[in-house]
Every structure is written in structure tokens, then in C-alpha cells.
Design a protein around this nucleic acid. Structure first.
Lengths: 213, 213
DNA sequence: CCGCATGCTGAACAGATGTTTAGCATGCTG
DNA sequence: CAGCATGCTAAACATCTGTTCAGCATGCGG
């Protein structure tokens, strides 16, 4: 009775959003199937039944998280397409959203798949513009390059745990850690990695051998 | 003595290994926690109890899979360090092993983490050699570059599902699909992506702004 | 032949999980 | 005030989970 009033006044957010945020954090950190409805409820400071009361089922909660995250990513500065727009917004989003998105791509939810496709599409156009404007090198396979590029932007997101371990940043905040690896990535994008065509030729040799048998 | 060894290897084909292979496929395809012991047993054509009889627990099974996969990846042509060695072996390994490895890196198992660290270490040395030999560009942050490079090699592995959807390969076998995206990656590594330093400078601007506040 | 290890099974168990149900308190509306 | 919707809960439920247990068949060594 009085405890209810107290809890309510303690939270300046509605119950629904509190639950969704708790789910977002836990899903992103642990993965959807490793998190129980009761754990989410406990983190949100409510009962497990209320979670289901609001979202119908755990699957409903997951879809709500998906929708929220996709909205966060898509709802960014849409006109700002001369930058990576969507992805940039994503990387600017909160850590919880970022982690959740990384998991979502791996869990293969339909919403995440659609988002991935859209990002690839936008990236391909963005790279095309760059090629026309002269600040992006042309490619032998623009579509594949765009797709690979997107997976590479996503990679530090899903392998963040390993990057953090391999690139100790002391007590620097997480953003600085991200900056270090992103800087290394941009360096590769700008200068290239291999100084000659040796590896490219080696690849062609493999392709030829495979094609012949 | 001999008979025991013989029988063991024979039973490896029939029993233990059949279970391990079934677990490997299911773990790789679905993720460890989404797969039940009973599902593994069903796929291997045995009872659930036998799975536990052989591996003690589900965790024991997972560790056996980890050990097997790590052995597969590490056991490649070790002397052949002038190539990407470990990673090359991994990419040559069977599809099930590859998928499992991708999951393992995400599930954060200690074995996978150690393997990741080793791969980064070997890659950094390999890139150093390349720089000395002149066929790799020097870097401002060799360690970060090696780490990012490894995550990029791993990315198509974990995002394979999305790549397949975005890069339809008709009825071509999976290896050809892999070849298409790897070719695009090597192209970036060889020619670079950005034709000028614009993005690199933009990054430095961001860093500066962040550092100032 | 006996004994016994080995590979294997069905049945059962304890715990966790998602979900449902019945109901309480509050606050708004007629 | 009565009535009703809302936000919320505890408890029970059914199912699924990993795991254990008692026992069956087979084959080998004594």
C-alpha cells in the first residue's frame, strides 16, 4: 500500500518503459534466452506477472525492445545521409541499445534482419555517391563490398568484449576504447592494409583452382 | 591394450563422436542455451542419458566441443606461419566447426577467449613481419590494427546469415558465397576504401572535441 | 560357467521457466 | 456513493530443463 506509493514516486518513468529498459539492458548483456522474465521484473522492481501483463509474453517484450531499438537507430538525423547516418546514430546511441542491437543481429530476429538489409542498401548508395564524387575507390563488386563493410562496422560491436580484453584502456571510459579501435579501422580504410596485390592474386589463384575442379 | 584402443576408436565413430558432432552442429546453428540435451541425443540417435553418461554434464559436452574445435583450428599446418595459418585453417575447416567457433566467440567461453587472444597475437606478429618485408603498410597503432583485423576476419563468420541473404548466390555452394565476400574484403585491404584522408581527419576532429570536454 | 565392465536405456526428480488466474488497492467517472 | 478501469501482485500451473538412478544387454577375461 504505502510501499506502492513510495515506489511509484521513486520512479519518474512509467512502469512499461522501466520494464523495457531493464529488458534492453539484460537482453543486450546476456542474450535473450539467458534472461528470465523474473530477472527482468526484479531489475525493474516489479513482479514477473506485471511484465507479462504489459507485454503479453516474453516474445512480446522482445519485439517491443526490437521496435524501440530500431526506432532509435532509424529515427536519427535522417536527412544527414552524406554521413553513414543510420550507423552513426547507432554508434551514438546508448551503450545498452548498442549491445542489444549486436545481440539482435546474431539472434536473427526478423526486425534486425530487415534493419541490416536497409543499412546495407543505404551504405551501397552512400559508397556509390562516394565513388562518383571521387573520395571512394571504385569496386569490382559494389554490393559485396557494401555488405562486407557493414559487417566490419558491426564487428567491434559484437566482439567488443574481446577487443576490450586485447586493447586494455586502463580506466578510460568505454567511448575512448571504441575510439581506439575505430581509429585503427579508419586507418585501414584510408591507407589499405596490403602494400601490393600479392594477396589479391593469391585469392584469384584459389578461385581458379576451385573453379577448375 | 590394443583391443581397448581399437574399441575406443571404433566407439568414437559410433558413440562419443556422433554425440559430439551432433552437439557441434546444433550448438553452432542455434547457440548453446537454445539446444537441449534431449535434442542433441535425438540428432545423434541415442538417449539423453547417454549424452550425460559420456560427458558428465551439458557443460562437459560444451567443453568437449570447445576443445575439439580449438584443436581443429590450432592443429593446422603450424609451421606455415607466413600465411594467416590459424585463421586459414579455420576457414578451411568444416562448416559446422566454423559456425560453432563463431558462436563460441560470442558466448564468451574462456577457451574461445584464449583462442581469440592467441590469434590476435599471431596476427600482430604476422603484420609486423609484413611491414618489415614491405608488403604491409605500417600502422600508427599496430596492436589495435591487429585486433580490428581479426574481428573483421571473424565478422563474415558471425554475420554469415545476413550476408547470404544480402548476397544471393543462387544455388552455388556455400564456399562460393564465402569467396565472394572474402574477395570484397581483400579488395578493401589491398586498395583501401577511402581515396583521401577526409574521414581520417574527421575522426581526429571528433577525438579532439571529445578530449577537450 | 561366473563375474564384471561397458554401452546404453526409460523413468523419475528437482529446479527453473513462461504463463495464467484470482484478486487487491487506487483513482477516475457517472 | 457505486461502478469500473487501471496498475499491480502472490500463488499456482504446466512444461521444459539438466541430471540421476536402477537396470538391461552384450561381450570379454577368469
Amino acid at each position: 500500500m504505502f510501499s506502492m506509493l513510495f515506489m511509484r514516486s521513486e520512479s519518474d518513468v512509467t512502469g512499461r518503459a522501466r520494464i523495457r529498459n531493464a529488458a534492453l539492458e539484460l537482453f543486450g548483456a546476456e542474450g535473450v534466452n539467458r534472461v528470465s522474465v523474473r530477472a527482468i521484473a526484479a531489475r525493474a522492481g516489479v513482479s514477473a506477472a506485471l511484465v507479462l501483463h504489459h507485454f503479453g509474453s516474453k516474445e512480446g517484450l522482445r519485439k517491443a525492445c526490437d521496435a524501440y531499438v530500431v526506432e532509435q537507430v532509424r529515427g536519427g538525423p535522417e536527412a544527414d545521409l552524406d554521413d553513414v547516418s543510420g550507423l552513426a546514430a547507432m554508434l551514438e546511441a546508448g551503450s545498452a541499445v548498442r549491445l542489444y542491437l549486436g545481440r539482435a543481429f546474431l539472434d536473427g530476429t526478423p526486425e534486425a534482419a530487415a534493419l541490416f538489409d536497409d543499412i546495407v542498401e543505404a551504405t551501397e548508395r552512400w559508397l556509390e555517391d562516394g565513388v562518383r564524387a571521387g573520395w571512394v575507390h571504385p569496386s569490382d563488386d559494389p554490393r559485396a563490398r557494401a555488405a562486407v563493410y557493414v559487417t566490419w562496422l558491426l564487428a567491434p560491436l559484437t566482439f567488443g568484449e574481446h577487443l576490450a580484453r586485447v586493447l586494455p584502456a586502463g580506466d578510460l571510459p568505454e567511448t575512448d576504447r571504441t575510439l581506439r579501435s575505430s581509429r585503427a579501422g579508419i586507418e585501414i580504410f584510408t591507407r589499405g592494409l596490403f602494400a601490393d596485390d600479392r594477396v589479391l592474386h593469391a585469392w584469384d589463384a584459389v578461385r581458379k583452382e576451385r573453379g577448375s575442379r
